[in-house]
């Protein structure tokens, strides 16, 4: 099948405004969008820039706005996108070149939630034990690959770039509800701050955008509840 790709292109320091470039590629319906992007880059226009690494939905490098919604280019099939496909960089992040966006502030917020186990108490002789039920409590949020699809699909984030954003909250949730973690109070201070979870308006774009199927809005809701009623 022939597909027409409309790609929003822009190069920092060179272009004043982003512009649309169109490419036509021959592909199989079961090819992924990433394959079509490769076909463009390898055989038509080597200047097209996008990130990808593992190409199998695990590394989280190729999240982009595909036909208006955030998806991983390596996980969507052309047959599900139609003959005319629009591809844009994720919204709300500064564009470096074409589909490559700046992750600096995103990672800054990720560091802010201290996404690692904080246990001050004396470690036991072997390991810190946890029951399967305790592990299950935060299982959903362990799946995050930091692709940025949720945060850049969030209207609250678009309008307020200071908002912590769904991705950082998901990461905080993963440790907040870990029975071995002892930094609950500190974590709740960050999450309950002015630009923490209260910026969430329960729009559900993040849940729709997550390529790992994490129930992001639910996770944010659980953090709100923890701030109100204490951790459960």
């Amino acid at each position: 099948m022939k597909v027409k790709l409309r790609i929003k292109r822009f190069e920092r320091g060179k272009d004043r405004e982003p512009y649309w470039a169109e490419y036509e590629v021959e592909a199989e319906p079961t090819d992924r969008l990433l394959d079509a992007l490769h076909a463009v880059k390898w055989y038509q226009d080597g200047t097209l820039a996008f990130r990808r690494s593992c190409a199998h939905g695990v590394c989280g490098s190729d999240a982009m706005l595909i036909n208006g919604v955030n998806r991983l280019a390596c996980k969507v099939l052309l047959k599900d996108l139609g003959q005319r496909i629009t591809v844009e960089p994720m919204r709300g992040f500064a564009v470096i070149k074409d589909l490559v966006v700046e992750f600096d502030r995103f990672m800054e917020k990720y560091r802010l939630v201290e996404p690692y186990l904080k246990a001050g108490s004396e470690p036991p002789a072997k390991e810190r034990l946890q029951t399967p039920e305790e592990r299950e409590r935060f299982d959903d949020t362990t799946k995050c690959i930091l692709c940025g699809a949720c945060t850049t699909s969030c209207p609250s984030f678009w309008s307020n770039p200071d908002y912590l954003g769904p991705a950082a909250i998901v990461q905080a949730h993963r440790f907040l509800f870990d029975s071995r973690d002892e930094a609950t109070a500190e974590r709740l201070v960050v999450l309950g701050a002015r630009d923490g979870v209260w910026r969430c308006r329960t729009i559900y774009n993040c849940t729709d955008a997550c390529p790992r199927g994490i129930e992001v809005t639910r996770a944010i809701g659980e953090v709100k509840k923890a701030l109100l009623l204490g951790k459960r």
Partner: peptide, 19 residues
């Protein structure tokens, strides 16, 4: 973090107003 500086920093709690 409204109070997040460009270099990063601790956010200021809001005393529960938003809660």
């Amino acid at each position: 973090m409204a109070e997040l500086s460009e270099a990063g920093g601790r956010p200021r709690p809001t005393g529960g107003l938003e809660l």
